[in-house]
Nucleic acid binder design. Structure first.
Lengths: 202, 202, 202, 202
DNA sequence: TATGAATGAGTTTTCATTCAT
DNA sequence: CATGAATGAAAACTCATTCAT
């Protein structure tokens, strides 16, 4: 892990990510980061103006990593294939005990979430997901609901499942997951042979 | 649990909750709590051995409050009525910008989640929800999936929707919510006239 | 010196004054102040928000002390008596190796001197001196020059002499000082029997 | 002394002088100097063993510059002409907002003033002034007072006036200055037709 | 010579906790 | 019981100085 990068900025980044993932943002001191990164405390300040900027930069980075994992391989195949690939990307990323994932969960539910880096993440994530949701909605395959609602209904379960598996609160069971993935897919589909009059606009 | 009798203790509790909700757990000092509560800093130590215990006690309290809100009025009516009442309880609680809710979200995604107070919360919540899920599953109305999975599939969307509304990322639209609530309900139902052989046990 | 005041704020004040007088403002650390004052480092921050405020408050205080010394007993007697009393007040205060005097000299020639505390000092000093200068000017005894100019001409020498004596660059010689004091007094007097046409307004 | 040949050294000198003049000696870091001088931080250590030496060397240089300005053209003409030229040199140099002048004022009132560079400055300045004072004193034109006293009486006012003008505390008024210059000149003169028995030797 | 990244001791500041009143 | 001044250890941050390039 530390082999590929010999530049200090990355070392500091990875060290911080690791500590946040392990001990939480609360127990995060610059000395600790320096020690974990194997640099002097003062060195951190050559790369980040202060602790706040370090955390903020790391947040951006983590969000980018998460977005890229979630949106991997979601541009080929049928709508269903793409949706399910994303669904499993979410579960599989969430299952991992990686520093990126663990620190992501710390960041995401912190106050000050309505600030630009997070907004940018939401946008970039939904950029990819928007295509899927828009396509299905335009084709009349999905319910005529806003993206956020479709996401909450069909993909939030994937997040929760990944987390529960990671925490050991449930067993990883590929067959069950495929069944649930299908439920999620079905749940946002309009009934095939029904002319359902939707009530809410995009 | 002790009600409004133990005045100072409650003041400290409320003050802490407010600060966490407002500025996050990170920016939380004992002097701040004391000032917000209108007591002396030393007074806090008459009610809590140290900061850790204060936070831990508050966590328990918050979780209790959340559980009670979510499970309100979920013991009468048909299975569907009870499920949908819980679903809306979750959305409506999540929508609120109350200190309880905001500090809950801080607590719930923190490291050290596998500790006793959270376990107790999980148990008490699922105690209530278990009845619903078990009843539906036993009657063959719900898919034969473990509670966690049913929860993730049908109730996590409610959590996400409440949060999104609170954050102003989507509009509150009662009709849409009722539609989505129904989708969530449908998603865990076994197809009415199919004898589907479920693949995974409770 | 430390007997009369047992309150910490004053202890910190005196300690800071002493260190500035001894080692200069440059070598002034909060730890040092704390040690010299016999309090914990953190205690300083109960009385001053930060180092800057401490220094700024001390500056105000020192200026007040200096002003009061210079203006001592300058309200009784003839104009000449009052002027000469001020003149000697300046020399005698400047001669002293007191912390107040030594730190005053540090402060007075620092950048940021045009700020309010210093302005206030100038005003309060000149308030007292203004009476003397105005009286002499109005009576046609002094040259019709602005206060600053009269001050520079007749009292700056006193400052310089006090400093030189303190630094051991010249001997303290009461007779000589009285002679020079008289020169200073004479220098701003209009020639007794000459109708000198002054060129500059107050 | 080494002129503009030793380029880097001069750049560092000028940069330091500028920062001291602008922000004071307190806010003076080696990195700042390096940046202002356009050299690397390490380069400074090729020309000066450490910060102390840099400041000390600069002090010497500044004092030399000041001395040369003050003593400019003071070797020709009558005693009065020479005195008044020095007097105006002092005012005019003090009026300037040059780095040399501003950093000079910082240096001159610092602790550790009794050290060699300052002594050398005093000597070189008084070397020039001594001629004037000695000549006047020997000819019985000046009061029989030591140089320091004559300086304080007749030239300190010039320093104060220059400073006050620079600080905007008074207007520059050539006529007024000439008048005051004359007062200063007069103040150290023995009364023309009096055989005053002076009381203190040089 | 010159560089500038890196250092780490030192500085300012914060804050959980104690204790005399 | 309650207070809040005081503590001092630890945190964030600075900066003179070094050294591999």
């Amino acid at each position: 892990m530390k082999g590929t990068m010999d530049n200090k900025r990355d070392l500091i980044f990875k060290a911080t990510e690791k500590i946040i993932a392990t001990k939480g943002i609360q127990g995060l001191s610059m000395q600790q980061i320096a020690q974990e990164a194997g640099v002097a405390a003062g060195t951190i300040y050559r790369y980040f103006t202060d602790k706040e900027e370090l955390i903020s930069e790391l947040r951006k980075d983590v969000l980018r990593v998460v977005a890229s994992h979630i949106l991997e391989n979601c541009e080929e195949g049928t709508l269903e294939q793409r949706f399910k690939r994303v669904w499993f990307n979410i579960v599989n990323f969430g299952r991992q005990r990686t520093h990126a994932n663990l620190s992501y969960e710390q960041y995401i539910h912190l106050p000050g979430i309505d600030t630009s880096p997070h907004q940018a993440f939401e946008r970039s994530t939904f950029e990819g997901l928007h295509h899927i949701f828009a396509e299905g909605r335009d084709a009349g395959i999905f319910h005529n609901l806003q993206d956020k609602t479709l996401f909450a209904t069909s993909l939030e379960p994937a997040i929760a499942l990944g987390r529960s598996i990671r925490r050991g609160q449930m067993q990883y069971d590929k067959t069950e997951l495929e069944f649930v993935c299908n439920l999620c897919w079905q749940s946002i589909l309009t009934p095939p042979n029904t002319t359902h009059k939707e009530q809410s606009g995009r």
